[in-house]
């Protein structure tokens, strides 16, 4: 079973996270994309919205909690205005 861990964070942080987790053997894949958000951060660099990074990490389900905690603490996502992280199961066999 594979689990997806997704995280929203400030622009530029996604690449930093990817570089830091690059050597981690438990991780099957990391993807970074850029997006915009209106109320994830209080500071909106362009007035009504701010740019942000979205990181998607694929891991084996048994490592999910560990990686989840790692992402959360490494990027400080539990501090104010820094983003959020979520975990989503990807079932390989039909439910």
């Amino acid at each position: 079973m594979i689990t997806e861990i997704g995280a929203f964070m400030h622009k530029g942080e996604g690449l930093r996270l990817m570089n830091e987790l690059h050597g981690d053997k438990k991780i099957l894949g990391i993807y970074v994309e850029a997006g915009r958000t209106e109320d994830l951060f209080a500071f909106r660099e362009f007035g009504s919205a701010s740019e942000n990074d979205i990181v998607t990490i694929l891991v084996e389900a048994r490592h999910a909690t560990k990686i989840f905690d790692l992402v959360c603490s490494k990027m400080g996502l539990d501090s104010p205005q820094s983003g959020m992280v979520f975990q989503m199961p990807l079932h390989t066999q039909p439910a």
């Binding site: 689990t3 999910a64 989840f68 959360c72 996502l77 539990d78 501090s79 104010p80 205005q81 820094s82 983003g83 959020m84 992280v85 979520f86 975990q87 989503m88 199961p89």
Partner: peptide
């Protein structure tokens, strides 16, 4: 729509 196991973020 997908179910999530858990999320974490800053909570006042």
């Amino acid at each position: 729509m997908n179910k999530l196991d858990r999320i974490a973020t800053y909570i006042p």
